[in-house]
Design a protein around this nucleic acid. Structure first.
Lengths: 117, 117, 117, 117
DNA sequence: GTGGTCTAGACCACG
DNA sequence: GTGGTCTAGACCACC
């Protein structure tokens, strides 16, 4: 599982790791039922504090993306619709920023279509 | 100009104000050349410190969304293409989060189309 | 005389006008004895307050670049060496910034040579 | 790290500190990876408010000269070419001012060469 | 009038 | 420990 973080970024590391894992789910590189690395293992790989990964996994659980089983570990949750007002708000916000930056409707749509290539 | 902020949120106020203003530019409620409220005026309206707005305006200037004219105040910059790698990265990230949440390509595209209504 | 200013810039207008005039002297587009526009005329051309140009001319006089004769107006001063510690300090500062930005000695020297083309 | 500021100057303190740090990078007294003093530490040393240094570091980050790692603090960024139109503009402006002041091409070139001594 | 800078001191998030 | 945010109130430069 390829996750890259940037310790010099101003987004918190736990957040970056969350985003990266969600991206992997979005691209289907991680599918329902797939197991995620252990907290300790991933922390070592990334050279960061295990507590940071712990926090990431808790967030992902609360958001419904993963399930945590003390015996098995962490695995990607079954597909349900995780539609969320807050998410739609954020999506709209960034799409409007795109408009403000001068992107046309067509350009934004092609960004969406490019995801499935 | 209607801007709403949430002082209890964990996203910084200056950031929220930035996002709100960019949304207004995105929806064309603010057009090139329109004047923004004065630093002090907006700060008073929102019940926050002028320096916070000062920071917001400075960021918007650096991002190219507004121009600051000592004589007049702050106004929305002329339309140029403010395409930015970082922005595209963020857009892609949130679109993939949409996929991970179970949104279909069509649903995401209709979000884009809804912007122009 | 072609002078362009940017009212949205954060360098004061009087400063911009000063810099532009000095650039014209540096490129020999303005030579010793040449007359500068009147305060009022230049202010009108640029669409700014005459006091601003007045300030510019005073600065240029104090720096030794121009002479002001109440009867004739403002003209470029005779060539003398206006070497100045402060200037050398500034030059060194910006050259070092060039090094910090990764410019090589050769690149900086070619910038100097390009002035005479 | 020796940084001197002049609180009576009309160039902002945060700007002076920025310039001083860039000079240190330019002279290689600060190299890639070197850690800068903490915000509070440097502020105390200089007898100024921490927010002023905060602003300096933020500017340096945006300009690409430093990286801010939450875990460590602020360090000099890896060498990349930070070439910038605005910088070249400024360089040209001051070089032309040199010509206007009567410096010959050779004198200006020797200023560049002196940097490497 | 406008934006820009600075202070002193507080509180928070991150790791 | 680090940097980041915010306040309340002051003073300054520019036009």
């Amino acid at each position: 599982m390829i996750i890259s973080i940037d310790t010099a970024s101003d987004t918190p590391i736990y957040q970056q790791v969350r985003d990266e894992i969600i991206k992997l789910i979005g691209t289907k590189e991680l599918k329902s039922g797939d197991e995620l690395p252990t907290v300790r293992g991933l922390a070592e790989d990334l050279g960061i504090n295990p507590m940071t990964i712990q926090k990431t996994y808790n967030i992902l659980k609360n958001e419904g993306f993963v399930e945590i089983d003390r015996r098995i570990g962490v695995k990607v949750a079954g597909l349900k619709n995780l539609k969320d007002d807050n998410f739609e708000e954020n999506l709209k916000k960034i799409l409007l920023e795109g408009k403000a930056r001068g992107y046309s409707q067509e350009e934004l749509i092609s960004e969406v279509k490019n995801l499935d290539i």
